[in-house]
């Protein structure tokens, strides 16, 4: 426990000190939200557009922070030998990875709080009400995307390509699943692709809870699919995760 606290503290310092992670991971979804609410008016899902965009941006933020941000961090540490070096210390690998995840969750929590606060200031969006549903839903989302982020590190071979590869996954996924606006006017094929992606189900949960006032247990399918993606990511990560850089 002491080790975990120590490592979380240092992970936080590492995160905020790196301009790349602080801007790309933390700030980007918030900036995007400010932009989108400035240009979209009218109603989405029967609510003011800014409400739905806020929900969409929380979903996008989950994928961006827990999946892309985590994967880039781990790939870069792996390729320059930090992960390998850490393995030679008494810090248990499980504690290390847990600390990285906890740190990502802290970043995400601050991001979500900032999004709600910004929405409130700019467009008077309401504070979330069903916190007992929303917090577990977001925690499930972060966990599932973090598991997928761990899994994908094995398929990214170099640091140079990692941020491009991840954006090529995350941005279209966010677009296809409705983070940036509803998808019901999209062509059928695109909607069908969106329907298998995990972000779709996380957005389902967030929209249901924040916009429709539903509870987590009103959405068993979404919980199950999201959990399934998380377990799949975990299974792949357990088999493929590497601590050492490619032999050079």
């Amino acid at each position: 426990m002491k080790l975990l606290r120590h490592q979380v503290k240092w992970e936080q310092r590492l995160f905020w000190r790196s301009r790349e992670s602080a801007v790309f991971v933390f700030l980007f979804p918030i900036l995007l939200f400010a932009l989108l609410t400035a240009v979209y008016n009218g109603h989405i899902y029967g609510r003011p557009a800014s409400w739905a965009l806020l929900a969409g941006m929380i979903g996008y933020g989950t994928a961006n922070t827990a999946f892309a941000g985590l994967a880039i961090t781990l790939v870069s540490r792996r390729e320059i030998g930090i992960l390998k070096r850490i393995r030679a210390t008494p810090l248990p690998p499980a504690v290390y990875l847990t600390a990285v995840l906890v740190s990502i969750m802290i970043v995400f929590a601050i991001q979500v709080a900032s999004l709600f606060a910004l929405g409130r200031v700019l467009k008077s969006t309401p504070w979330p009400s069903h916190l007992l549903s929303l917090v577990p839903a977001l925690a499930l989302g972060v966990a599932a995307f973090a598991a997928l982020g761990l899994a994908i590190t094995a398929f990214i071979r170099s640091l140079e390509g990692s941020s491009a590869v991840l954006n090529v996954i995350v941005l279209p996924m966010a677009f296809l699943t409705g983070s940036f606006g509803p998808t019901r006017h999209y062509p059928k094929v695109l909607r069908a692709i969106g329907d298998v992606l995990p972000l779709k189900y996380l957005l389902d949960l967030i929209n249901g809870i924040y916009l429709q006032g539903q509870q987590l247990w009103d959405k068993p399918t979404a919980v199950a699919v999201l959990g399934g993606w998380g377990l799949f990511g975990m299974a792949v990560a357990l088999r493929t995760f590497r601590w050492e850089p490619r032999e050079g």
């Binding site: 080790l3 120590h6 490592q7 240092w10 310092r13 590492l14 000190r17 790196s18 320059i80 030998g81 930090i82 390998k84 070096r85 030679a88 210390t89 008494p90 810090l91 850089p245 050079g248």
Partner: peptide, 26 residues
């Protein structure tokens, strides 16, 4: 351990890097 090829966090200072590692040991 000093590995043949390995780097440490570019954004930490020398003292911070040492303190971070020191925390792993009894």
């Amino acid at each position: 351990v000093v590995l043949q090829h390995s780097q440490l966090w570019p954004n930490l200072t020398v003292a911070e890097t040492h303190r971070m590692f020191a925390g792993y040991y009894e």
